[in-house]
Amino acid sequence: MKRRTFIVSAAGALAGVAGCVLASSPRLHRGAALAFGTTISISVVHDDAQLAARAIADGLHVAQQIDRLMSIYNPASQVYQLNRDGVLAQPDPRLLEVLAQAAELSRISDGAFDVTVQPLWQLFSQAAARGALPDEVERRRAQSLADWRQLEFDADRVRFRRPGMALTLNGLAQGYAADRALAAVQAHGIRDALLDTGEFVARGHKPRRQPWILGVRDPRDPEALAATLYAQGCSVATSGDYECIFTPDYRHHHIFDPALGDSPDELASVTVLAPTSLLADGLSTTFMVMGWERASALASQLPGVDLMAIDKQGRERRSAGFPADA
Rank of each mutant, 00 (worst) to 15 (best):
A178V: 13
R141C: 05
L123T: 03
G164V: 13
D135F: 08
P163T: 14
E152L: 10
M165L: 15
A142E: 01
Q174C: 14
G198W: 00
V185C: 05
V201R: 04
A129L: 09
A173V: 11
F160R: 01
Q174F: 06
R141E: 01
Y176W: 03
A132K: 04
D147G: 09
L133I: 13
R157G: 07
D156L: 12
E136N: 06
V201S: 08
E152P: 02
D192C: 07
L167E: 02
G198S: 01
Q150T: 01
V185L: 06
D179V: 12
G131A: 07
G131E: 03
R191Q: 13
F124R: 02
D147C: 10
N170T: 09
L120D: 03
D196P: 12
Q126A: 15
S125D: 07
L151Q: 03
D156R: 04
V201T: 13
E199P: 07
H188R: 03
A178G: 11
R139Q: 15
V137P: 08
E138G: 14
F200S: 06
V158L: 05
A155K: 00
D192K: 00
P163R: 08
Q186Y: 08
Q143C: 15
T197N: 01
A142L: 02
F153M: 02
A166P: 11
R140I: 13
R161W: 08
R141S: 01
R141D: 00
R162D: 02
A127K: 00
R191P: 07
A178F: 10
A184N: 05
R191G: 14
V201M: 02
R161G: 14
F160M: 04
A173E: 04
D147R: 00
L123W: 04
G171W: 06
Q122S: 08
N170W: 07
V137M: 11
F153Y: 05
P134M: 07
D147N: 13
Q122E: 13
A177W: 03
D156G: 14
L120H: 05
L194A: 12
Q122R: 00
M165Q: 15
L120C: 02
A142G: 07
W121K: 05
R149L: 13
R130Y: 06
D156Q: 12
A187R: 03
M165R: 09
A184V: 14
G171C: 10
G171P: 04
G189N: 04
D147V: 07
